[in-house]
Design a protein around this nucleic acid. Sequence first.
RNA 1: GUGCCGUUAGCUCAGGCGGUAGAGCAUCUGACUUUUAAUCAGAGGGUCGCAGGUUCGAGUCCUGCACGGCACACCA
Length: 500
Amino acid sequence: MSVDDEQVAGRRARLAALREQGADPFCIHRFDRTHTSAEVATAIQKIEAEAPDEVNWDEAAFATSVCGRLMAVRDQGKSIWADIHDAGGKVQLWAGPAQMGEEAFEEFKNLHIGDIIGVHGEAFRTRRGEPTVRIKECVLLSKSLRPLPEKFHGLQDVQLRYRRRYLDLIVNPEVREIFARRTAAVKAIRSHLDALDYQEVTTPMMQPLYGGANARPFITHHNTLDMDLYLRIAPELYLKRLVVGGMERVYEIGRVFRNEGVDASHNPEFTLLEAYQAYTDYQGMMELFEGLVCATAMAVNGSLTFEYRGQQIDLTPPWRRVGLLEAVREASGVDFAESVTDDDARAACRDLDLGDMQKDGWAGLLDKTFDRYVQPELIQPTFVVDYPVVVSPLAKRLPDRPSLAARFEPFIGGAEIGNAFSELNDPDDQRARFESQVRAGLEGDAEAHPLDEDYLMAMEYGLPPTGGMGMGVDRLVMLLTGCTNLREVILFPQMRPEEG
RNA sequence: GUGCCGUUAGCUCAGGCGGUAGAGCAUCUGACUUUUAAUCAGAGGGUCGCAGGUUCGAGUCCUGCACGGCACACCA
């Protein structure tokens, strides 16, 4: 018999005995708690604060009902100390035969670590200073049939932590803390935009045509409509339709799906914020970005400075702005503005450490050079501005340099955390850009945009000048919480099945 | 995709040169009325990731596979 069977069998035997006695814990529907663990501690402090002298807890103990998961038992024979954990923390319990009766005391000894219990009793503070509930009555609310991971080291196995996140949350308090901070971040993003009169909307996740980013989509099928649909790679094109419709400030926080590799900074589904504001441009989006990230940092860390991978980062605006081509020229010595053709660019890059360049054109080499020589140095928050139009199919041209787009990407700690631009609103130019994307697709670019006639029609009705931005929420949370793997900030990251 | 590393009890980890597998927590039994990683005494618990190979003998050496971690590559 394996140890698993042995421990599970012991717990099941106990459950069977309870059912035999007509005390099936799974038949209990509710428990009316009067205090959470945190509220017990607060109530005790309040009594102490109001007492003129030291509190006599023999008299001052107050009635309470608490509940949670049994996580530790310190059995001393006629006196048992135990801890239960609830959402906000833990509270100590004290069980003795005099308070709860011999029979109930013996029943208490039959509990297993992991059981969910409810307790009626009296709260006091022990001589050692621990807020404690002296048990008068204990109710088993749910039987835990499997042994929990070890209490001291917690759950370390990374696979188990992600595959059974509930165990990770039960035994690793710092994990609960990270997700609490993630929730605070999303809340801060929402209230920042709400305060600026942005309207939160939801747009289709299943789209007949995908767009708004360069990525390969997931394909699904609708049976009764008998049509393939794409899981969205971005909400962009729908949000801009709403701006055409007169919603001047809109945003969406939601999941997008990109059919690409999985690693420490990529999960196939992730949370993206996109916001659009009519009558502003990418300069306006820079201010929005600074405000959003600072508000989020305050919510997550209570500060505009934080440490990431040993580097001290300061988010105080205004952030540095550098031109993409200028930054690349300074870091690598190659001026892409002087190269016109793909061959020119390859020749200019021949001395750089870029690996195989055969398959790269001008834009690909620019991208590679930036990634290799510029991006790792962008530790302090930096807006990299003015991207080539050829890699920005939805962005407006700069009036004085029409080969460049009014677009920027913000970098923090060497990581790209978003993308923003003045939205292209010339439907003829947009059609030409789509057509060149379609050509790129035919030439083998799996991530090129398809042509979206319906979107072009919307634009022909008139899109006001508009600034738009997107921000990777998971990546921002990762930075602000000091996590170096995206999976640490996603509750259920995508994993391969364990067996073949 | 490539390289390196990992996979041993429910959990956390040891296992020197190849000789029938160990500890702590958890579980079970006993002692103990202020403990908080409680303590003390004892017991049970293993297809050593999977499949082959070498060998008299494999947790250990070799090959393949699976899953994961890190780095690089790809990707935005």
